[in-house]
Nucleic acid binder design. Structure first.
Lengths: 341, 341
DNA sequence: ACCACGATTACCACCGGTGTCAATTAGATC
DNA sequence: GATCTAATTGACACCGGTGGTAATCGTGGT
């Protein structure tokens, strides 16, 4: 099992009877190189199974081949989708993916991120929501000289370095969809306070009602925490109302499913007695019964785009459509016309 | 925004009026160094905010500070738990975590893993189930000279480099628990074929029955794929049996919840008409109603242990209890005595 | 055959650390 | 104060690549 000593560029150079630099040119596909030598070097490389040492390359180039996802998001499905998207974005390149969670509530969050970046010096980082909403963290990345892209629920304060999806519009469409089905009393389960995405989603909710000439009834709006339990709690409160809503929009799927459970416990039939729309399009949403009509949030696409942007050569910074990815409404079985009883 | 040029060891050396080597000693907490110089160097480091370049260190030490999780596992919660555990395991060190998914069914899986390892040269890798069960992949890591630890559902062919949990025993206990409650007709929803963990779980199931003097009835054993849908399908088949079981053990929580749904569709009450036990203790299991009695699989602990083992100094290879982590049964609300009707 | 010139290739320094070993310094002993 | 030994510190090569520039090669023109 002897120590497997990796061949180095010097070994290749010696065997191919060329200088290291020439080998380096072959590795980097430099055009100023004759076909003959290229072939010769390539055959030596193949023969001894040479792979350039990434650490040496990183040192010489003063850049690494690693991108990192920095997050503070407890949702497993979200994270996995992000990772999948980023991996798609770097597929076929020499880049690898690191993950680094941080604690949003820690007072040392900035120091922690700085620490991570300085300790690993990744080529670039993707800041995931909700920490992507803190401009000082983006600033920090800039100061540290590391490229970064933020993933957001909406154009943040500055569009630069941001891949986003328009939550407000998505929710407006979803709620309009309920209205088109004839619902006029529509409940809302909000997300946690203090972040942009829940705010945007609420704004979209209100815009849809207003566009249809409906009044926003505060009694139908309940706070939630993006957790299943908070959905149950809020759902229960809503269905126990004297004048209960005929439909509910929940700011994420987990809460929507919580509402389903709560409604059923109260003897309501879904969707006959209560239509429900969620947000995220998690796998779960198609597993529950009835399957959940929900807003498909293009996480994978966003993450893929973010990763691509990150590793794109400087100067490719064209902004525009590609940085703002569309959501869409996935119509399943949890919405019907309201009961006319 | 000028280019943020990182101070290097040379800057520190110059400012502190010592050689780079001395600075290096300070960084590495070498004992052969006078307190006076150490203090002086440290103050310079603090002043200019010097952080050693990880790539240069990696090159000189011929080892870098990255561990990677290599997986082929579609389950989001599992992955996130593993990541959490590994991050706990490397917390406080200079190590970072990379993730690399591979495709179990791809014929190039070995080449893909080799590619990843050679391209990134991580310090070590953790092979997650189910690919951890393929001995040739562990072999590959050994050949490539990268440290590795496998996470398994049981002692695999060789205990070396393996952190595991005894699934067979866990399932035996879970099924015995059902038997103790008076169940004698117990259904089993299996996991996918071809992997160790489902096999072990089935073995545990049979052992429990045999230990209680019960016969294993093939009619009560249904294949599953670890997915919610497969649980629904199998559950439906079971409850439609003429002589249906009074309890079901499903090889993971998702399928267990599928069984719940299927049973309810057929008009059965859970747990009164059908007791259910799952495996994994995913968050979902406590969210469903009734909450699911399930086997807690110590993923986080296993991953933490695996990461620690990976970065432990050579020679720390003591085997034993720490490498085999205990599962436990989490008693919730999905198990009661069988109906005597 | 000779020269200019572009295409190839080699040489050497350098990226920012660490290992080795020699040189220097300090403290102890007589 | 001289000598010896142990404790500190420094000089230099090296890890395995890349950049810049000089040297060499081949070719066409005259």
């Amino acid at each position: 099992m002897g120590t497997p000593i990796k061949p180095t560029i010097n070994d290749v150079a010696r065997l191919a009877q060329v200088s290291k630099k020439t080998v380096s040119r072959v590795i980097n596909k430099s055009p100023l190189l004759s076909d003959k030598t290229r072939k010769r070097v390539e055959s030596v490389i193949a023969e001894i199974g040479y792979v350039p040492n990434p650490q040496a390359r990183a040192l010489a180039l003063r850049r690494n081949f690693i991108v990192a996802a920095i997050h503070d998001n407890p949702n497993a499905q979200f994270l996995v989708n992000v990772q999948q998207g980023m991996l798609e974005g770097i597929a076929g390149t020499d880049f690898g993916l690191m993950v680094q969670p941080v604690d949003r509530n820690s007072p040392t969050i900035a120091a922690d991120i700085r620490d991570f970046i300085e300790r690993q010096r990744p080529y670039g980082v993707v800041l995931l929501p909700p920490i992507s909403e803190k401009p000082e963290l983006a600033q920090l990345c800039g100061d540290l000289g590391v490229r970064y892209v933020r993933m957001g629920s909406v154009k943040l304060d500055t569009a630069e370095h941001t891949v986003s999806s328009n939550d407000r519009e998505a929710v407006r469409r979803a709620v309009s969809y309920l209205i088109e089905h004839g619902h006029t009393r529509i409940g809302l389960i909000e997300g946690p306070e203090g972040f942009t995405s829940p705010r945007e989603r609420r704004a979209g909710f209100e815009e849809a009602l207003e566009a249809a000439g409906l009044k926003v009834d505060p009694a139908l709006i309940w706070p939630g925490k993006y957790t299943f339990e908070s959905g149950v709690t809020a759902g229960q409160a809503l269905v126990e109302l004297k004048n209960r809503p005929t439909a509910v929009f929940a700011c994420n799927d987990e809460m929507a499913i919580g509402v389903m459970i709560a409604a059923r416990r109260s003897g309501l039939a879904i969707p006959e007695d209560l239509s429900i729309v969620g947000f995220d399009d998690t796998p779960l949403s198609s597993h529950v019964w009835p399957s959940l009509t929900t807003v498909h949030w293009p996480i994978v696409d966003m993450a893929r785009t973010a990763a691509r942007k990150l590793i794109a050569p400087e100067g490719d910074k064209e902004t525009g459509a590609e940085w703002l990815l569309p959501s869409s409404l996935v119509e399943r079985d949890s919405v019907v016309k309201p009961n006319s009883d």
